[in-house]
Amino acid sequence: MGTPLGDFIRAKRDSIQPGSLGLPDHGRRRSPGLRRSDLAARAGVSVEYLTRIEQGRDRNPSVPIMNALADALSLDPSERDHPRYLAKISGGECSAHTRPAPARRDVRPAVLETLRLLEPGVAMVTNRLGDVLARTSGFEAVTSGTGLLDSDVPNLTRYVFTDPRAREYFADWADVADEQAFDLWLGPSVENSEWLTTELALAAGADFARRLNRHVVPRRGVLRLNHPAGLEVRLLRETLELSSDAQQLVVFLPADEQTAQAVEQLRGRLRSRPHGHLRAIS
Protein backbone atom coordinates (compact mmCIF):
# COMPACT_ATOMS: atom_id res chain seq x y z
CA MET A 1 0.00 0.00 0.00
CA GLY A 2 1.35 3.42 -0.93
CA THR A 3 1.67 6.52 1.21
CA PRO A 4 0.85 10.20 0.56
CA LEU A 5 4.59 10.87 0.25
CA GLY A 6 5.04 8.10 -2.29
CA ASP A 7 2.02 9.34 -4.24
CA PHE A 8 3.41 12.88 -4.30
CA ILE A 9 6.86 11.86 -5.55
CA ARG A 10 5.38 9.60 -8.19
CA ALA A 11 2.95 12.30 -9.36
CA LYS A 12 5.72 14.90 -9.58
CA ARG A 13 8.00 12.47 -11.43
CA ASP A 14 5.24 11.71 -13.93
CA SER A 15 4.66 15.42 -14.54
CA ILE A 16 8.28 16.23 -15.47
CA GLN A 17 9.45 16.02 -19.06
CA PRO A 18 13.07 14.76 -19.23
CA GLY A 19 14.01 17.51 -21.68
CA SER A 20 13.14 20.20 -19.12
CA LEU A 21 16.00 18.86 -16.97
CA GLY A 22 18.42 18.44 -19.84
CA LEU A 23 17.94 14.66 -19.91
CA PRO A 24 17.55 12.61 -23.11
CA ASP A 25 14.10 11.47 -24.20
CA HIS A 26 14.00 7.68 -24.08
CA GLY A 27 11.10 7.45 -26.51
CA ARG A 28 7.61 6.11 -25.93
CA ARG A 29 6.98 4.69 -22.48
CA ARG A 30 3.99 3.20 -20.71
CA SER A 31 4.28 5.91 -18.04
CA PRO A 32 4.74 9.61 -18.76
CA GLY A 33 7.41 11.83 -17.29
CA LEU A 34 10.75 11.15 -15.66
CA ARG A 35 12.10 7.64 -15.31
CA ARG A 36 12.59 6.38 -11.79
CA SER A 37 16.23 5.66 -12.59
CA ASP A 38 16.78 9.25 -13.74
CA LEU A 39 15.26 10.69 -10.57
CA ALA A 40 17.28 8.30 -8.41
CA ALA A 41 20.50 9.33 -10.17
CA ARG A 42 19.72 13.05 -9.75
CA ALA A 43 18.96 12.54 -6.03
CA GLY A 44 21.97 10.32 -5.40
CA VAL A 45 19.94 7.35 -4.16
CA SER A 46 19.49 3.85 -5.48
CA VAL A 47 16.55 2.94 -7.71
CA GLU A 48 15.64 0.26 -5.16
CA TYR A 49 15.45 2.82 -2.34
CA LEU A 50 13.40 5.27 -4.42
CA THR A 51 11.04 2.41 -5.30
CA ARG A 52 10.60 1.61 -1.61
CA ILE A 53 9.67 5.25 -0.88
CA GLU A 54 7.21 5.47 -3.78
CA GLN A 55 5.56 2.17 -2.83
CA GLY A 56 5.32 3.09 0.85
CA ARG A 57 7.77 0.44 2.07
CA ASP A 58 10.10 3.12 3.48
CA ARG A 59 8.00 5.54 5.50
CA ASN A 60 10.67 7.56 7.25
CA PRO A 61 13.28 8.97 4.84
CA SER A 62 15.87 11.25 6.40
CA VAL A 63 15.92 15.03 6.05
CA PRO A 64 18.96 14.93 3.70
CA ILE A 65 17.15 12.40 1.48
CA MET A 66 14.04 14.58 1.41
CA ASN A 67 16.15 17.63 0.47
CA ALA A 68 17.91 15.64 -2.26
CA LEU A 69 14.60 14.50 -3.73
CA ALA A 70 13.25 18.05 -3.61
CA ASP A 71 16.32 19.27 -5.50
CA ALA A 72 16.09 16.42 -8.00
CA LEU A 73 12.44 17.22 -8.69
CA SER A 74 13.26 20.96 -8.99
CA LEU A 75 10.59 21.84 -6.44
CA ASP A 76 10.10 25.57 -5.97
CA PRO A 77 10.02 27.11 -2.46
CA SER A 78 6.22 26.87 -2.22
CA GLU A 79 6.36 23.13 -2.92
CA ARG A 80 9.25 22.04 -0.70
CA ASP A 81 7.35 22.05 2.60
CA HIS A 82 4.67 19.69 1.34
CA PRO A 83 6.77 16.51 0.92
CA ARG A 84 8.34 17.14 4.34
CA TYR A 85 4.86 17.25 5.85
CA LEU A 86 3.84 14.11 3.95
CA ALA A 87 6.96 12.34 5.21
CA LYS A 88 5.92 13.23 8.76
CA ILE A 89 2.41 11.83 8.45
CA SER A 90 3.59 8.86 6.36
CA GLY A 91 5.96 7.91 9.16
CA GLY A 92 3.10 6.59 11.24
CA GLU A 93 2.79 9.46 13.73
CA CYS A 94 -1.00 9.38 13.24
CA SER A 95 -2.45 5.95 13.87
CA ALA A 96 -4.93 4.63 11.33
CA HIS A 97 -6.83 3.07 14.26
CA THR A 98 -7.49 6.38 16.00
CA ARG A 99 -11.17 7.27 15.94
CA PRO A 100 -11.70 10.21 13.56
CA ALA A 101 -12.70 13.40 15.36
CA PRO A 102 -14.40 16.51 13.98
CA ALA A 103 -12.18 19.53 13.57
CA ARG A 104 -12.27 22.25 16.20
CA ARG A 105 -14.95 24.81 15.35
CA ASP A 106 -14.79 27.32 18.19
CA VAL A 107 -13.02 30.64 17.58
CA ARG A 108 -11.15 32.41 20.38
CA PRO A 109 -12.65 35.72 21.55
CA ALA A 110 -9.45 37.60 20.62
CA VAL A 111 -9.69 36.27 17.07
CA LEU A 112 -13.35 37.28 16.86
CA GLU A 113 -12.44 40.76 18.07
CA THR A 114 -9.75 40.97 15.39
CA LEU A 115 -12.32 39.97 12.80
CA ARG A 116 -14.73 42.57 14.15
CA LEU A 117 -12.10 45.27 13.68
CA LEU A 118 -11.94 44.35 10.00
CA GLU A 119 -15.59 45.29 9.45
CA PRO A 120 -16.93 46.17 6.94
CA GLY A 121 -14.13 44.43 5.05
CA VAL A 122 -14.29 40.98 3.52
CA ALA A 123 -12.77 38.43 5.90
CA MET A 124 -13.39 35.02 7.44
CA VAL A 125 -11.94 32.53 9.89
CA THR A 126 -11.63 29.01 8.54
CA ASN A 127 -9.76 25.79 9.14
CA ARG A 128 -7.90 23.56 6.70
CA LEU A 129 -10.99 21.39 6.27
CA GLY A 130 -12.89 24.35 4.85
CA ASP A 131 -15.28 25.11 7.72
CA VAL A 132 -16.25 28.80 7.65
CA LEU A 133 -16.16 29.44 11.40
CA ALA A 134 -16.75 33.20 11.48
CA ARG A 135 -17.13 35.93 8.90
CA THR A 136 -17.65 39.64 8.48
CA SER A 137 -20.67 41.23 6.88
CA GLY A 138 -18.44 42.00 3.89
CA PHE A 139 -17.83 38.27 3.41
CA GLU A 140 -21.58 37.68 3.60
CA ALA A 141 -22.06 40.38 0.97
CA VAL A 142 -19.72 38.86 -1.63
CA THR A 143 -21.10 35.34 -1.05
CA SER A 144 -24.77 36.30 -0.88
CA GLY A 145 -27.00 34.28 -3.18
CA THR A 146 -24.29 31.69 -3.93
CA GLY A 147 -25.44 29.01 -1.50
CA LEU A 148 -22.12 28.90 0.36
CA LEU A 149 -23.59 30.13 3.65
CA ASP A 150 -26.89 28.25 3.44
CA SER A 151 -25.74 25.51 5.83
CA ASP A 152 -25.76 25.93 9.62
CA VAL A 153 -22.06 25.06 9.51
CA PRO A 154 -20.85 26.26 6.09
CA ASN A 155 -17.98 24.32 4.59
CA LEU A 156 -16.13 25.70 1.58
CA THR A 157 -14.69 22.33 0.54
CA ARG A 158 -18.09 20.67 0.52
CA TYR A 159 -19.57 23.62 -1.38
CA VAL A 160 -16.87 23.61 -4.06
CA PHE A 161 -17.23 19.90 -4.81
CA THR A 162 -20.94 19.25 -4.31
CA ASP A 163 -22.88 22.43 -5.13
CA PRO A 164 -23.32 23.10 -8.88
CA ARG A 165 -23.51 26.83 -8.16
CA ALA A 166 -19.84 26.80 -7.14
CA ARG A 167 -18.75 26.16 -10.74
CA GLU A 168 -20.50 29.35 -11.79
CA TYR A 169 -19.45 31.42 -8.79
CA PHE A 170 -15.72 30.63 -9.00
CA ALA A 171 -14.47 31.76 -12.40
CA ASP A 172 -11.40 29.54 -11.95
CA TRP A 173 -13.24 26.65 -10.33
CA ALA A 174 -10.55 24.05 -11.12
CA ASP A 175 -7.88 26.09 -9.34
CA VAL A 176 -10.11 26.61 -6.29
CA ALA A 177 -10.91 22.89 -6.25
CA ASP A 178 -7.19 22.08 -6.21
CA GLU A 179 -6.68 24.52 -3.33
CA GLN A 180 -9.42 22.97 -1.22
CA ALA A 181 -8.25 19.42 -1.88
CA PHE A 182 -4.65 20.30 -1.08
CA ASP A 183 -5.55 22.00 2.19
CA LEU A 184 -7.05 18.76 3.52
CA TRP A 185 -3.51 17.40 3.77
CA LEU A 186 -2.60 20.34 6.00
CA GLY A 187 -5.48 19.76 8.39
CA PRO A 188 -4.89 19.43 12.14
CA SER A 189 -4.52 15.66 11.80
CA VAL A 190 -4.72 12.90 9.25
CA GLU A 191 -7.75 11.57 11.11
CA ASN A 192 -9.66 14.81 10.55
CA SER A 193 -8.76 14.78 6.87
CA GLU A 194 -9.99 11.23 6.54
CA TRP A 195 -13.15 12.11 8.45
CA LEU A 196 -14.06 14.82 5.96
CA THR A 197 -12.96 12.96 2.85
CA THR A 198 -15.08 9.99 3.89
CA GLU A 199 -18.03 12.34 4.32
CA LEU A 200 -17.41 13.87 0.91
CA ALA A 201 -16.59 10.69 -0.97
CA LEU A 202 -20.08 9.72 -2.12
CA ALA A 203 -21.24 13.26 -2.91
CA ALA A 204 -18.05 14.59 -4.50
CA GLY A 205 -17.13 11.56 -6.58
CA ALA A 206 -14.00 10.60 -8.46
CA ASP A 207 -12.90 14.13 -9.38
CA PHE A 208 -12.45 15.00 -5.71
CA ALA A 209 -10.40 11.86 -5.04
CA ARG A 210 -8.24 12.54 -8.10
CA ARG A 211 -7.47 16.10 -7.03
CA LEU A 212 -6.76 15.03 -3.46
CA ASN A 213 -4.21 12.44 -4.57
CA ARG A 214 -2.49 14.67 -7.14
CA HIS A 215 -0.88 16.75 -4.36
CA VAL A 216 -0.83 19.86 -6.55
CA VAL A 217 0.60 22.75 -4.51
CA PRO A 218 -1.74 25.66 -5.35
CA ARG A 219 -0.46 29.06 -6.49
CA ARG A 220 -3.35 30.97 -4.87
CA GLY A 221 -3.47 33.84 -7.32
CA VAL A 222 -6.25 36.39 -7.71
CA LEU A 223 -9.62 34.92 -6.72
CA ARG A 224 -12.12 35.68 -9.50
CA LEU A 225 -15.81 35.52 -8.65
CA ASN A 226 -18.92 35.75 -10.81
CA HIS A 227 -21.47 37.06 -8.33
CA PRO A 228 -25.12 36.10 -8.99
CA ALA A 229 -25.94 39.83 -9.01
CA GLY A 230 -24.09 40.07 -12.32
CA LEU A 231 -20.93 41.58 -10.84
CA GLU A 232 -17.38 40.45 -11.51
CA VAL A 233 -15.18 40.45 -8.42
CA ARG A 234 -11.38 40.02 -8.27
CA LEU A 235 -9.90 39.58 -4.81
CA LEU A 236 -6.40 39.31 -3.39
CA ARG A 237 -5.99 37.10 -0.33
CA GLU A 238 -3.89 37.71 2.76
CA THR A 239 -3.79 34.81 5.22
CA LEU A 240 -2.81 34.89 8.90
CA GLU A 241 -2.05 31.44 10.27
CA LEU A 242 -3.50 30.81 13.74
CA SER A 243 -1.23 27.86 14.39
CA SER A 244 -2.30 27.13 17.96
CA ASP A 245 -5.92 26.84 16.79
CA ALA A 246 -5.24 25.08 13.47
CA GLN A 247 -7.24 27.90 11.89
CA GLN A 248 -6.67 30.79 9.49
CA LEU A 249 -7.82 34.38 9.31
CA VAL A 250 -8.26 35.22 5.62
CA VAL A 251 -8.69 38.81 4.45
CA PHE A 252 -9.90 39.48 0.91
CA LEU A 253 -8.82 42.75 -0.71
CA PRO A 254 -10.17 44.25 -3.95
CA ALA A 255 -7.65 43.69 -6.75
CA ASP A 256 -8.84 46.73 -8.73
CA GLU A 257 -11.14 49.74 -8.57
CA GLN A 258 -13.94 47.93 -10.40
CA THR A 259 -13.96 45.26 -7.70
CA ALA A 260 -13.91 47.88 -4.93
CA GLN A 261 -17.04 49.42 -6.41
CA ALA A 262 -18.68 46.02 -6.85
CA VAL A 263 -17.98 45.08 -3.22
CA GLU A 264 -19.43 48.38 -2.01
CA GLN A 265 -22.53 47.76 -4.11
CA LEU A 266 -22.92 44.27 -2.60
CA ARG A 267 -22.48 45.72 0.90
CA GLY A 268 -25.29 48.16 0.15
CA ARG A 269 -27.56 45.29 -0.83
CA LEU A 270 -26.73 43.49 2.42
CA ARG A 271 -27.36 46.59 4.57
CA SER A 272 -30.96 46.58 3.44
CA ARG A 273 -31.46 43.24 5.21
CA PRO A 274 -32.20 42.75 8.95
CA HIS A 275 -28.73 41.40 9.71
CA GLY A 276 -25.30 42.48 8.55
CA HIS A 277 -23.04 41.87 11.49
CA LEU A 278 -20.24 39.52 12.40
CA ARG A 279 -21.35 35.91 12.39
CA ALA A 280 -19.62 33.12 14.28
CA ILE A 281 -20.33 29.42 14.37
CA SER A 282 -20.55 28.06 17.90
Rank of each mutant, 00 (worst) to 15 (best):
G138Q: 01
S37R: 10
H215G: 02
H215R: 06
T146C: 07
V176C: 05
R158G: 06
R59E: 06
S15G: 10
R13D: 05
A68T: 02
H227A: 04
L270Y: 02
R59Y: 11
R219Q: 15
L148H: 09
L129I: 05
R105G: 05
I65K: 10
M124E: 14
L249S: 01
L196H: 08
R279E: 13
A246K: 01
E93D: 08
R167W: 07
L148F: 07
L223V: 08
R52T: 14
Q258N: 12
E168K: 14
P164W: 07
N127V: 00
R269D: 06
A246F: 06
G92A: 06
H215F: 06
L5T: 11
F8E: 03
N226D: 11
G44D: 03
P228Y: 12
H275C: 09
F182A: 01
S189I: 09
E232P: 04
D81Y: 13
H215P: 00
F139P: 11
L39K: 02
L200G: 03
E54A: 09
Q265G: 05
L186A: 13
V216K: 14
H26D: 07
G268T: 06
N67T: 09
P109V: 11
H82S: 07
Q247P: 04
S15D: 10
V250H: 00
S31T: 15
E113R: 15
P83K: 14
D150C: 13
L133D: 05
L115S: 07
G221A: 07
V107H: 04
G145W: 01
L117W: 12
P64G: 05
R234V: 01
H275M: 11
L223A: 02
S137Q: 13
A262N: 08
N192D: 11
A201D: 15
L86N: 09
R29H: 10
N192Y: 06
L129V: 09
E140Y: 10
N60I: 12
P61H: 12
Y85N: 09
I281Q: 09
T146Y: 04
R220I: 07
A177K: 00
H275R: 12
D58M: 10
P274G: 08
V153P: 13
G121I: 00
G221L: 04
G276S: 04
L156W: 08
P64Y: 05
N67F: 09
W195I: 04
V190Q: 15
G92I: 03
G221I: 03
G44V: 00
G91A: 13
A171G: 06
L75S: 04
F170W: 05
T143V: 03
A68R: 02
L202D: 12
T98R: 11
R220K: 14
E48Q: 15
A141Q: 03
E140D: 14
T98E: 11
D76K: 14
F170D: 01
S20L: 12
